[in-house]
Amino acid sequence: MPAMIRRAAVRAAFCVGATAIATTACAQTSAVDEIAKYRAALQDGNPAELWEARGEDLWKTPRGPGKVSFATCDLGLGPGVVKGAYAQLPKYFADADRVMDLETRLVWCMVKQQGYSEADATKNPFGGPGQKSDIEALVAYITSESRGVKMNVAMDHPKEKEAFALGEKMFVYRGGTHDFACQTCHGEDGKRIRLQDLPNLMTVAGAQKAYTTWPAYRVSQGELRTFQWRLNDCFRQQRFPELIFTSDASIALTMYLARNANGAVFDAPSIKR
């Protein structure tokens, strides 16, 4: 923090009495600095912890028509094992014979073990004012138990390889009214949209930095937002129709990005603007 303030002070001094373009550049740079300061100040007291607490409660409490907790839900490291589970997802699950990300696997357990219908299990994936999402809370808890763990998504099973290959192709699919693909914004180093820096998700470095910070408490949303939400909201802004929650495309894209993030230390739930 002190280093950042010192840098901003030096820049401010330099900017006094500058010419037209230089003033723009100076005003522009200090705007970016101020935002960085705001982001640093946000780190203490992440409201995501409120979702983590609720999620832990949901994980351990018997629920649904079957009155069963998630103790028998296998996220890839054995029934009920949460520690480190997110860092190895998505993965192929033999009992479902498909590749699943966390949210898909949670829906699977809710349906197969707790007795919910598919419709009920998927009806409220993204919370809003006065409308809490259980999935968001569960994701917050489970991901918090992978904090500090290195991403280690395997790609041994043919369906895991297939999911990655499909995700890689989907990433560059130009479509919609604006001809956008994921690549349009996330395919180059050092770019930003307005004042929001954009990670280059086609590189290992970019994927590592970005994927390890989701889910996140989005201050502007006042909600804990998951990776399924992130994909859904990207496509909305790309002028595509609506991405279906836990659809095959959402899993393939998650596989592509999570696998590219391998080796990086997972550090979520984080807090973002």
Partner: peptide, 8 residues
């Protein structure tokens, strides 16, 4: 004071 306030 904003939503989900943090007090230290």
């Amino acid at each position: 004071v904003s939503k989900n306030p943090f007090l230290s």
